[in-house]
Computed example of a mutant assay.
Amino acid sequence: MINITDFKENLGLSQVPSELEKLIYFQNNISSFGNYSKGFGVLIDEKWGLKSWSEDEDFLNRLIPFAQANDTGSFYAIWNDGTNKPLNQMPIVVFGDEGGVHLIAENILQLLHLLTYDTEIWVDFDQAYFYKDKNNYEESEDLGDYLKWMKGDYGLGQIEAPDELIKTAQEKHKEDFDQWFGQYFKQE
């Protein structure tokens, strides 16, 4: 169970974006960590994953890790792109356990839509993508509840082509993110 007060304090936020607060409620009360979308779960993250990349205060302050992305250690973070938009409109980045870092959604709601595909994200150095082997796919236990919740709260059904959404987000934000991220690291 995630305590929303602890979640806010850990992230240094006075307010959690409504989409994220609703997702935490869903995870706490309707489903549970990892049971509504493969490998995913909101968690309280003390930026340990980010600190393995850099201890630079600007770097740490502009990224807000909030969820596990897959079962191998990748995680999602909100990137404060410096535009003064509300947090729920900031881009989402995935940090891969193998070292790849990619912008994957324009905002939290788009990430929630990506999760309806119900597979773990694959994060390589060159790209991040979702892959579903139709022959070996087993639906998450609470996917039906998640899809019902997404439809009811946001009018969104199950996504058919998640990589198209990622591509669109990258067309809008990848260049800016790569330039900002490049201050701290050379992406290869």
Results as ranks from 00 to 15, higher is better:
I2D: 00
I2C: 00
F7G: 00
E9H: 12
L13S: 13
S14Y: 09
P17E: 12
S18G: 02
S18M: 15
E21G: 01
K22W: 03
L23M: 12
I24E: 01
F26L: 06
N29D: 02
N29G: 01
S31P: 08
S31Y: 06
S31E: 06
S31N: 10
S32W: 06
S32H: 07
G34K: 08
S37K: 02
S37G: 02
K38N: 05
K38W: 10
F40A: 00
F40H: 01
G41E: 02
I44R: 01
I44L: 08
D45T: 02
E46F: 12
K47E: 09
K47S: 15
L50C: 07
L50V: 04
L50F: 14
K51I: 10
K51E: 15
K51F: 03
W53A: 04
D56T: 10
D56Y: 08
E57M: 12
E57L: 07
E57R: 11
N61D: 13
R62N: 15
L63S: 04
I64F: 09
P65K: 03
A67T: 01
Q68P: 00
Q68R: 14
N70E: 08
D71A: 06
T72E: 04
G73P: 02
G73Y: 03
A77E: 02
A77P: 06
I78D: 01
G82Q: 06
N84L: 14
N84A: 10
K85E: 15
P86T: 09
P86H: 05
L87Y: 05
N88P: 01
M90P: 00
P91E: 00
V94E: 10
G96S: 13
D97F: 07
G100A: 08
G100T: 05
V101P: 12
H102A: 13
A105Q: 13
E106M: 07
E106W: 00
N107D: 14
I108L: 13
L109R: 05
L109S: 08
L111S: 06
L114I: 03
L114A: 05
L115Y: 06
I121C: 01
W122M: 15
W122P: 02
V123S: 11
F125Y: 02
D126L: 07
A128L: 15
F130K: 07
D133K: 08
D133I: 07
K134L: 09
N136S: 15
Y137V: 04
S140D: 04
E141I: 09
L143M: 11
D145W: 04
D145C: 06
L147M: 05
K148Q: 05
K151N: 06
K151P: 00
G152S: 15
L156G: 01
G157I: 05
Q158I: 13
Q158N: 09
E160D: 12
E160K: 14
D163H: 11
E164F: 06
L165Y: 13
I166T: 11
K167P: 00
K167N: 10
T168W: 12
Q170L: 10
E171G: 11
K172H: 09
K174G: 00
D178I: 11
Q179I: 10
Q183W: 03
F185C: 09
F185K: 15
K186A: 13
Q187N: 11
